[in-house]
Amino acid sequence: MSPMTGTRAGANEAQTTRTSGRAAFPGAFVLPRILRRPVRAFAALASGRVTIRPHLGSVAAVVFLASTGLYGMETGGHTTTVTQALTSGVGFALEDVQVSGNVETSDIDILQQLGLDGSTSVVAIDAHAARQKLMELPWVTDAHVQKIYPRGLMVRLVERKAVGIWQHGDALSLIDVRGDVIAPLTGARHADLPLYVGLGADRHSDELEARLLFHPELRARVKAAIRIADRRWDLRLDNGVTISLPEDNVGEALKRFAAFDAGRDVLSRDITAVDLRLDDRIALRLSEAAFERRTQALEERAKLIKAAEKNS
């Protein structure tokens, strides 16, 4: 018998032995394949064939306690506080805050909104969350927050611009170019802005502003825009004259008045109102003094006509 033949025969014999062994114990329990490796490892550990490295238990205990502590801080909401305490003590305490772009919003309001104090750590600041907090301020329309390590923070704001004052009842509020309310009017800083009065005046102020942009001289003289029944506007000028605009085609009405006023300087005359609500005419209302003078002039004219008829 050759060696190769003997090897093949030995393998066949071993295979036959394993097969016959299973056949010899038909009721024996066989572990699933996925559990065989863990069971063999446990058996080797129990028999002492595998040795445990020194300090492995200590390391496992430290990892377990650290994981438990982190889970407890996260569950209790103390992660930020602990992070600030640890990082502030090693040189990351916030000391320099640079603020730019704020005109209406004070630096104190910004610091209070961000919740910054002497124990704040730069590491613990969430720039995205800080931006969201700044966006809640009434004047802020956009914000940018950047951490500057190790101890700085840069805040840049974009604020809304007030273009008018909206009077609703007894309350006065500042509104932007879209008619959105910014904040209540306080003090006299914005007192020179145009006044919008009445229901719906805030929502439609942007439409009126768009029409008046084509007539800058008239727009500069408007001191108040009064919304009538939430349908149309009356413009109150700086000299007390009221211009009544139509409900529709406001731009065309203003063009007609501009052409009519060219060379006449109607608004500087002794009138109290200009009515543009009719498409085919412009009506002027005289002041009481001008009306009396006009009445007297007509009476004098009538007397002269009668006298001339008598003498003829």
Rank of each mutant, 00 (worst) to 15 (best):
Q15K: 12
D176W: 03
T75W: 09
V30P: 00
A41S: 02
R285G: 02
E252T: 10
K255P: 02
Q167D: 10
S47I: 04
M4S: 10
T120I: 03
Q98A: 14
A253N: 01
I271A: 06
R203I: 12
R18S: 12
W233P: 05
L134F: 12
R156F: 05
R256V: 00
D248Q: 08
T16F: 11
A258N: 08
R8G: 09
A273R: 15
K310A: 15
D238N: 10
R156H: 10
V103Q: 13
W166G: 01
A201Y: 06
K223C: 08
G179Y: 02
A289P: 07
V99K: 06
E217F: 00
R301H: 12
A60F: 08
V97N: 01
S121A: 09
T51K: 13
M135R: 14
A259Y: 09
E300M: 13
P3Q: 06
E252P: 06
R264L: 14
D107G: 07
T80C: 02
T51F: 05
H144T: 13
P138F: 09
G164E: 01
H215Q: 08
L31E: 07
T17H: 15
S20F: 07
A66C: 13
I305G: 05
I52W: 04
Q84G: 11
T272C: 09
A229K: 15
S2N: 10
K133N: 11
T5M: 04
A9T: 10
V63K: 11
T87N: 05
